[in-house]
Every structure is written in C-alpha cells, then in structure tokens.
Amino acid sequence: MNDIEIINFKKSYGDVNAVNGINLQVKKGELFGLIGPDGAGKTTLMRTICTLLLPDAGSIQVKGMDVTQNIPGIRALLGYMPQRFSLYQDLTVEQNLNFFADLFQVPQSNRESRLQQLFQFSKLEPFKKRAAGDLSGGMKQKLALSCALIHTPEILVLDEPTFGVDPVSRQEFWEILHSIRAEGTTILVSTAYMDEADLCDRVALFFSGQIKAVDTPLALRKNFKFPLYRLQGKNLRQLRDFFDQISGIHTTQTFGDSLHVSFSGKQSESQWQAWQKKTGGNLVSWQVQEPSIEDVFLDLIK
C-alpha cells in the first residue's frame, strides 16, 4: 500500500484552478519531491494532504485513510512544516519544542530522549535558551523541522523548507532529510529550486496545477531527447544569433561565460568544425552538457 494515494485531485479558489486533476502515489519510506515554481499548486496539494483543505473533486488517502473522513487519524501520524513557517520568534528553542510536544501530547517519559535525538541532528542544543528570532536562517529551518518531528510522525510533509536559506545550510538540511528517510520516515517535500530535485528519490514536476512528469531525477534527465551542448565563444551574443538561425536547433540560452544549445538530433564532430569555420572562429569550443532538471522542466512546460 502507498503512503499517499492521490486520485484525480482537483481544487480551485473562485475561478482559479489551483490543482487541476492530478494522480500521484508516494511510496512508504521514499523521499518524494514536488518540484515547481511559485503558484504551481504545491502548497494547495500539501495542505489538502494535511487535512487543512478539502478536495473539490477526486480523493486523497494517507495510509489508507481518506482526508475528508479520518482527520484525527491522519493528523496523529503526520508531521507538517508549513511554507515560510517562522515559529514563535520570542520563545526560546526549548520553549518552542516543549510547546509542540505538549500540543502533540508527547508523554513526559519519552520527551527527554526525543529532544536528545532531535538535538543530535539539529545541533541546536547549545542554543536551546536562545530566542528563535535570534537564530540564523538555517538554524530556524532546523528548529521548525524539529518541531514537526517532535511526535515521531510516520509521514513528514515539508512545504518549501529551504526557502531563503543559504546554500551551506541547505545542503545540511538535505543531509538531515536523508538521515530521517533512512529511519523509515516517508517524506514529501516541495521546492521551487530545480537543482534540489536531484536530492530526491522520485520527483513530480508541477506546473500550473498539473503534474508534467513523475520519475526519478536520473530517469527524467536521461529521457531528455534533445542533445545539449555547452559552447564557449569570443562573442556570445553573435554566437547565439548564429545558432538561432540553424535548422534543427531546439533552444539557445546564455549562461554567463558560455552558451547552451540543444538540437533535435545529435551533431557530428565535422558539423561542429564546419560551424566553427562559419563563425570565423567565434565558436571556440563545444562539449556535451548533461541536461539539468531545469532543462527537462522547461521542455515539459513548452
């Protein structure tokens, strides 16, 4: 049985279709990523899974329980970290944790050992007397995660947990997620950062209320059917203008000091040399570029 089973789920606000009929299964123990830009419908889907919103159509089941039927049952086994969740800034780390422990009725006997476990990965113990508002962005995220984990949930739902956090803290946060997953917890995480897709077991690419693809990040990139090259040139603007005119070209995109071009088919070495000549040596070098999830995404939303 899948931990989360979504069948033809629809939800709209007024005339806006936030989520427009999606099907999705999240397996037990996997780290599943919902990848998509702001406004794609990620938050709506997550809130519905957490029983905070009701589906307009279709059904969502969490561990076999319907989100409209068994609300207390679902809430008891779910850990949820809302988007831009900022905790109680004026309470200390310890007070925040204790508050959520009270709220989720973590028995006093287990509490100390649970806090120790959480401190182990969050490394927040030395700061437990500090007000949450005085923590760095990365530490705040870890505290928020700890609060969501306090009652040892079976499924963890995280809505853009790495928003606005610096890259080092982001990396550390993902390492923590991997260790939680290793303990058997199912994790559903959303992000607007395409590069985080590679850190998930499986991902759904989400755009304007629809799922464009579901697979492992590796398979998604492997199936990208337009050979991609990275070019170096003396004048990138002219080089880009040149390739925009070539027949069989799929996309051209400047990236700082290089140009990415993709074609409908693979290009031979002799073809490249011909282009080098034709550009009067403006094209300096070319090499195959691995497509990123962003390339895949871009292609799917076209």
């Binding site: 606005g164 890259p167 950062y193 400047t254 990236f255 700082g256």
Partner: peptide, 28 residues
C-alpha cells in the same frame, strides 16, 4: 544564494568572513 542563478553571471566573487576568497567566471 542560488547557484542556478549564479550560473548566469559573467563573473562571480565568493566571500567568506568578510574576505574575498575567489573571483572568476563560473567555468573558471
């Protein structure tokens, strides 16, 4: 903060503790 954004710059500088640690194009 985001490296996929940084990739678009001609040149990047990376700072740590107030000091400039590295400057160069993303490729470099």
């Amino acid at each position: 903060h985001f490296m996929d954004e940084a990739e678009y710059c001609h040149r990047l500088s990376i700072m740590r503790d107030g000091k400039l640690i590295a400057v160069g194009s993303p490729g470099e």
